[in-house]
Simulated scan of single mutants.
Amino acid sequence: MLTIDDPATVAELTEMADRYETALMANDVETLDALFRNAPETIRYGVGEVLYGFAEIAAFRQGRVGGSPQRRVLRRVVTSFGPDLGTVNLEFQREGGTRIGRQSQTWVRTDAGWKITCAHVSLMADIS
């Protein structure tokens, strides 16, 4: 039977999500790249880009001047599915912005540790 939300696994994923958020806000490209699974199947759909494979994701980060806009996390849900798979979903708001953003990540435990294998970032329509 599949164990959902094992506390130890959720704690590990939460730690990884915190590490990702810290690296994102600091534009720590080396750490961000290390958190993504280095594979052609890794996908990242961004607000303005569609990236297939680790190489495209890494190239995007290298070319992104100034990094991600600063943001505040409004809500986060971390869910584990067994000991080796989980999701991190959150809502955020960019500093000075009114739009709500959404981010979802699928994490998988590999021989090299937890890695993001699929990510999606989007912004909701401005409702102000």
Results as ranks from 00 to 15, higher is better:
T22N: 05
L32K: 00
S104H: 08
H120Y: 10
T14N: 12
E95L: 12
G96N: 05
G66I: 09
A112G: 05
P40L: 09
Y45K: 08
V29A: 11
T98E: 15
V47M: 15
F60K: 07
A55S: 01
R99N: 03
E91N: 10
A23S: 07
M124G: 14
I100D: 02
V47W: 01
S104V: 12
L13N: 08
C118M: 09
A125W: 11
M124L: 13
V50D: 04
V88M: 00
G86S: 08
A17L: 06
F60M: 10
S122C: 13
I127S: 11
A59I: 04
F54H: 10
T117G: 13
D33P: 09
R75L: 00
G67C: 00
A59P: 02
G48C: 06
A23Q: 11
F81P: 06
I4G: 00
P7T: 08
E49M: 07
T31V: 15
Q93G: 03
W114K: 08
A17V: 09
L32I: 13
M16E: 13
E91K: 06
G113V: 04
T79Q: 10
L85K: 04
S122E: 08
F36Q: 01
V88D: 13
P83N: 12
R102L: 06
I100M: 06
V73P: 07
N38S: 13
T106M: 12
I43K: 09
R94I: 13
E12F: 01
F81Y: 14
F92G: 04
M25H: 09
R37P: 01
A112I: 05
G86I: 10
S80T: 07
A58Y: 01
R61L: 12
M25G: 11
N38H: 14
G46Q: 02
L90N: 03
W114R: 05
R76Q: 04
E49P: 03
D33H: 06
I4V: 03
L90S: 04
R71D: 09
S128T: 15
R19L: 10
M16H: 05
V73C: 04
M124Y: 06
R94D: 05
E56I: 01
D111T: 12
V47D: 07
G46K: 03
V121S: 12
L32P: 01
R99Q: 15
E15R: 15
L24D: 03
C118P: 05
G101R: 04
G48R: 13
M25R: 13
P69G: 10
E56L: 06
G53E: 00
G96D: 07
T31D: 06
R72L: 15
Y45S: 05
G96V: 13
E15I: 00
T79W: 02
A34I: 00
R94N: 09
T31P: 06
W107H: 01
R37C: 15
S104P: 01
Q70K: 14
R94L: 14
T106V: 11
A119Q: 12
